[in-house]
Design a protein around this nucleic acid. Sequence first.
RNA 1: GGCGCUAUCGUCUAAUGGUUAGGACAAGUGGUUUUCAUCCACUAAAUCGGGGUUCGAUUCCCCGUAGCGCUACCA
Length: 499
Amino acid sequence: MIRTRFAPSPTGYVHIGSLRTALFAFLFARHNNGKLVLRIEDTDQNRKVEGAVENLIQVMRAVGINFDEGFYLKEDGSVGERGEFGPYLQSKRLDIYHKHTEQLIAEGKAYYCFCSEARLDELRKEQTALKKPPMYDRHCRSLSAADVKKNFDEFSASGKKPVVRFATPLEGQTVIEDLIYGRIVYENKILDDQVLLKSDGFPTYHLAVVVDDHFMQISHVIRGEEWIPSTPKHLLLYQAFCWQPPKFAHLPLTLNPDKSKLSKRQGDVAVEDFLKNGYLPEALVNFVAFLGWNPKTEQEIFSMPELIEQFDLGKINKAAPIFDTNKLDWLNSHYIRGLQPEVLLAAAKPIWSEKNIAVENYPVEFLNSILNLEKERLKKLSQLGEGTGYYFNQPEYENGLLIWKKSDAADAKAKLQKLQEFFERLDDKEFSRDILETKLKKFISENGFDNGSVLWPLRVALSGLEKSPGPFDLAAALYLGHRRNGILERINAAISKLS
RNA sequence: GGCGCUAUCGUCUAAUGGUUAGGACAAGUGGUUUUCAUCCACUAAAUCGGGGUUCGAUUCCCCGUAGCGCUACCA
C-alpha cells in the first residue's frame, strides 16, 4: 500500500513551493491508488499562526488537492480530522514522543544534555573562529549516572529541563537511496548529536517526523531538497528504533528569478494571492506541475486527471527550476478561453460589482456576450475590472480618437451620420454579429468607402477606446444590453464631439 | 569553514556516445485585420571551463568554476 503525506508547518499563507510539494505528493498517491495524509507539524510553538490549517485546506481544495487522511474541511466549513493513525497534529502526540525518547535513553541511544544556551553559543563561536564545523562537543554524552542525577537536581531546583540528544554513531556511513537524486553517502562522524526533545517538552522535527511517519505507516516521504542533509539523521533514528524506513523522494527547490530560494521578499509566492489576482486553479496546477516535472512529450496542457495518469517520480529532474510567471500567464489565458460561460459569469459578477456596475440590471445574454469577447483578451480574470466599463456606461471620447489615421474630422463625422441612418434602417433581427458584418460591409462597398474610414470611427464611437474588440462584435453585444437606442446614442455623442 | 546537491536557448524543458541539439513561453520580423488581441509564417537564441576515456563526448569519469541547500532547543 502506497501511503504518502504532506506535512506543513502552520505558518500562515500557502507558499508556491508548498503547493508544488503537495501537488507532487498528491499526484504520486493518486497515480498509485495510494493514500495521502495531511499532518500538521506544529512543534515550533513560536511560529504557529491561528487559522493557518483552515486556510491551507481551503487553498488546497480550491486547486483540486484533497487529502484522504488527517485534516479535512467539513461540510460546514470547519476543520475535521479523520483516519486511524491520529492524532495528526504533532502537538497532540507529545506523550508518544516522550515514550520513544525514554526508550532510546534506556538503550543508551540518546542522552540528556544540560548544556546552557550560552555554553553552546560560545562553543559555536570558537569553532567558527577556528574555521571548524560548528558541532556539539558531546559534553553530556558521557556523563556518569551520578552526574546526570546531580544535574537533574540542579535543573529542577531552578525549574529548568534538559534536552535529549541523539547519540549519533561515531563511525560508519549512512546511505540515502533517493528516488530522485539516487545514492548519497554521508560519513556518520560529521553528523551532529541532534536534539530530539527540546526543553519545552516538544520534539524537534527530526524526532517527530520519524516517529510519525513510522506510526502513520508512510511508505514514501516526498519533501523538499532542503531535507537531504538531515535524512541520514532520520535514517539513523529508524535504525535506533529498529524500524523499516520509508522510501525518500526529495524534490528540487524552486528558485526566485535571481536564483535564490523562492521567498516572499521577491513578489508573490502566496497561492491565495494568485487565486485572488485572477489566476485559475487549473493554470496554477498545470504550471506548478511543470516546475521540475516533464512528461517527456511535447504536450504542454494538462488537466489534473491527465497529470495523475502520467505522473512519475522518475521524470522529475534534479536541477532547481526558477519560478517565472511568464508561462503561467500564457497558461492562464489559455484556460480562461476554455471556461464555461456560467463559470466565467460567476467569477465576473463580483469583479464588476466592485466597480459599482449594477450587474443585475442587465440581461444575462448581454453579460455573456461581453465575457465571450473579453475572455480572448485576458491574461487574468482580475483584468475584467479594468476597461470593461464602456459596455455599461456611455464612454467619453478623447480628442481626435474618433478620427481614422488616414482621414479627418469632417470625414469621420460624415461617416458617423451615414452609420446613424444605417442603424436606424436596420431590422431588429439583424443585430447579430454575422449579419451586422455582412450588412455593414455591403453598406461600405455600395457607398465606395474605405473600411477603415467607417469601421474605425464606429468602433471608437461604441467603445471610446483606442483598443477594443471589433465593431461588429461590439454592436451586436451592445444591442443586447442597450438595444438600438443605446447604439444610436453613442454614435450621436460621437458626432457632437466632432462638431 | 565543513558536508551535500546541481549545471542544455532569457525561462520551463526534450534528446543522444555520431542529430542541422527538438518543443513551449517570452522576444523580434512579416502576413491577416479598422485598432488591440487572436491566428498564421518566419527569425534570433543554449550544451559553464579544463582535462581524461573513446574512432567520436553535450552525453561517461575527474578537476575547476558558479549557483543553491544544510550546518539551531526552526521546519
